[in-house]
Design a protein around this nucleic acid. Structure first.
Lengths: 204, 204
DNA sequence: ATTCTATTGTATCAATTCGTGACAATAATA
DNA sequence: TATTATTGTCACGAATTGATACAATAGAAT
């Protein structure tokens, strides 16, 4: 997200209301920004350094939006951020900017603009968390369509882990994990054998 | 911890001051309760359901401590808990109760008293987190002395995972992980071959 | 000193898993 | 009908793991 009339970029976020479930607040934010509902959100870390909030950028943002910093003093105070990620297919979503921002859009994780505060560290921590024990996490994510081919699954792994994987070994491993259900074949490729479709089994 | 004149048990915790680093607040709490310093603390989850705070037990605690609930209204409000665990040897520590509590002591994890709020769930989540990728975590913990035998290491694993492990396989696996440094033998056992002492290599 | 006993460090071997290459079975196209 | 690219699976050696065996102790008991 880029704030109005600034070149300050930030991860989308929001505040938790006084009597709101933390998880509800996160779902609310996701819904407002993306329209998405019923997405598995994974909480990965809570960032609470006292000096991570710098009042200056926030004051600039308020001023550039015609808001008096005195009236919104609470926004300049120190706050703690509980961070979540979700796995979705970015092609399914056009994120919407909020009242304070010009744009809200997708960036490749290796080509992020400079982010305010400790938001770059937040992205790093998210990636690191995601890469541990990916097997179980992809199943809960919404990155793949309900039914997908083995190749699509492998590409998801490769994108997240940023490595190439061996086709046969990958296939064998995935099948042996016993997480996948095999369905009908998918006939819409090219001049070659049609792949099976798979889905994740429902959680036990 | 058991609060004065109640039979309300809780995990030890505290509040983060307005301009205090979150991690500092946790270290402060640990220090007050145990005297321990320089302990690796692992943040594992942030609990933020709006209904997890029940004002009643808190009011009772205040009343039984001769404190007027009106004066401490903020303690009755909803709050969010960022939870941490540490791996230490409980024999090294006699925990100290705070002003509000009668006792603060160790309980076997499978024989906990009934805990207030969602504290039982917090314990479960801590255990679950700890059990994932234990290898790297034990090295950062303070559960074992600086030098320990292979048997002690295995007992630590077995205690945490709550399973029996095969001695020879365990030893081979530990050595192949390349995390241990071998030192002199420990001569103070019984009528049998003396075991080597090991320590964790310093982090790369 | 000598024998005995329990524990420890390795070796061994089978069972299992993994990396790698090969190959037959397709779908669409030419 | 031949061609082409991709897919599912097999096959085989390499590496890892489970399980058993055994020699090397350190101290205690004779």
């Amino acid at each position: 997200m880029e704030y109005h009339n600034t070149s300050v970029f930030a991860l989308p976020g929001g505040f938790v209301q006084k009597n709101e479930h933390l998880n509800d607040a996160v779902r609310r934010g996701l819904k407002e920004r993306t329209g998405l509902d019923n997405i598995h959100l994974e909480q990965f870390y809570t960032f609470g350094d006292a000096d991570r909030n710098n009042a200056e950028p926030m004051r600039t943002i308020l001023l550039n939006n015609g808001l008096a910093p005195e009236k919104y003093a609470w926004m300049l105070e120190r706050f703690i951020s509980v961070a979540y990620y979700a796995l979705i297919n970015y092609k399914d979503v056009v994120p919407q900017p909020d009242a304070l921002s010009d744009s809200c859009r997708w960036y490749p994780v290796n080509a992020l603009p400079p982010l305010m505060m400790d938001h770059t560290r937040i992205v790093e921590k998210a990636l690191q968390t995601l890469r541990d024990n990916l097997d179980r996490k992809l199943a809960r994510g919404n990155m793949l369509p309900p039914k997908f081919t083995m190749k699509e699954l492998q590409q998801a792994y490769e994108a997240i882990l940023d490595t190439k994987l061996l086709r046969t070994t990958f296939q064998r491993r995935m099948l042996s994990l016993n997480l996948l259900e095999r369905h009908e074949k998918q006939f819409l490729g090219g001049a070659h054998k049609a792949p099976y479709l798979y889905s994740f089994k429902v959680e036990k």
